[in-house]
Every structure is written in C-alpha cells, then in structure tokens.
C-alpha cells in the first residue's frame, strides 16, 4: 500500500506544480500574438514526445552532486522525482491548455475586453470558461507521470519505503522474474488511475 501512496502523491504534486506553470503558460501562448509564437508551439508539441529517460538523464545531470543543483541533495529523494515528472508533465499540460483555449468561443475574448478586463482577469476567465479542457490537460499530465518509469527509476533510485513507486516496483518485480506480482501491480496502477479519473469525472459532472 505504501508504494501506491508514494506513486500517488509524487505524481499529484508533480502535476500540481506543472499546472501552476503550464496552465498560465498555455493561456499566454494561446492568447498572445508575438514573434516566434509558431516556434514555441512547435517546440511544445515536440516536447510532448520527450522520452522519460532523457528527462531523467537531464535532471540527473542537474541534481547529481556533481551538477549545478547538487548542493540541494535532491537525487534519490521524492523531490527529485517530482522535479523530473514536473518537467515531463509541463509540455503536455501547456499544450493541451493551448488547445483548450484555442477551441473557446472567439467572442469570449472580445466580451472580456469590452467589459474592461485586464490581461490577468481575461486569462483567468479563459481558464474558467475552458475548465473542462484544462481539467483534461491535468488528467493527461497526471496520467503520463503516474505511469512513467524512467524518471522515477533514475531520479528516485527505487528505494524501498522511500522512492519506490508502482512503476519502479513493477520494473523490479519483472527483473526478478516475478511476472505475476508485476502484473498485479500493473492492475493496481490501473485501478488508481481509474479512481482518480472517476473522481475528476464526477467533479466535472457537478460543475456546469
């Protein structure tokens, strides 16, 4: 049960942090017109395909004792995984937020502005009006990080009772040849994903 909880809170924290950056960034990119916007969009799309081990390797280089953030001692701690997974979720959340905002009624912007809304208030209104799309972005980001193994393994180190998540436990059991236990953990992971999605689904059903 410990690893389920570890998986959950690490993925949730990473998603929440990624949302705090990714949602405003997505809104900004969707609404602002600036030079190089196309390149930013292309870059965000490309980053969605970022392999987890590449993120793991990159962050490893950052937070290893030899790296620029080595002082903080983040390697092989849950915080290290959160950092890596946050980077992993960020392009997904930002991108899907861009999509959600772009899909909104074009009259929304004109309405907000003609009613005297400044940039921050317009951005907030856009997020609230597009909340279903933004929620979908968060769910997708959460799904990616809770199911990934590369970052959790490289940055967490699969330490029992500490940084062992469901996915690294599955990798471990598989390496030990305990395929049945690995599969059972996989099912548990699916169950957790189902519970999280069901909770959000209900939440979404209640708010118009």
């Amino acid at each position: 049960m410990g690893i389920v909880w570890t998986s959950l809170w690490i993925a949730a924290t990473a998603t929440a942090l990624a949302a705090l950056i990714g949602v405003p960034a997505g809104v900004l990119v969707a609404l602002a017109r600036f030079r190089g916007r196309g390149a930013v969009l292309l870059g965000l799309n490309t980053l969605m395909a970022l392999p987890t081990v590449v993120v793991g390797l990159f962050v490893y280089g950052l937070i290893s004792r030899q790296g620029p953030l080595g002082e903080w001692g983040l390697l092989f701690t849950p915080a290290g995984i959160v950092l890596g997974e946050c980077i992993l979720a960020l392009p997904i959340i930002a991108n899907l937020t861009v999509t959600a905002v772009t899909a909104l009624d074009p009259r929304l912007l004109a309405t907000c502005r003609t009613l005297g809304g400044g940039p921050a208030r317009v951005g907030l209104a856009v997020v609230l009006e597009g909340r279903h799309g933004v929620l979908a972005a968060l769910v997708a980001g959460f799904g990616r990080v809770v199911a990934e193994v590369g970052v959790a393994m490289m940055l967490g180190g699969n330490i029992r009772w500490y940084t062992r998540t469901m996915t690294t436990a599955i990798a471990l059991e598989t390496s030990k040849g305990e395929f049945v236990l690995g599969l059972a953990l996989g099912l548990a992971l699916l169950g957790v994903a189902f519970a999280v999605n069901a909770a959000l689904f209900t939440l979404r059903g209640r708010t118009p």
Binding site: W9, T13, A79
Partner: peptide
C-alpha cells in the same frame, strides 16, 4: 491546487 501540493508535501515521509 495549492492545498493539494502543500498537503502532499507535508505527508511525504521525507
């Protein structure tokens, strides 16, 4: 969002 972040960080066994 903030509450979840803080709560989870607090509960973490770090």
């Amino acid at each position: 969002l903030l509450a979840i972040t803080l709560l989870l960080t607090a509960i973490s066994p770090a």
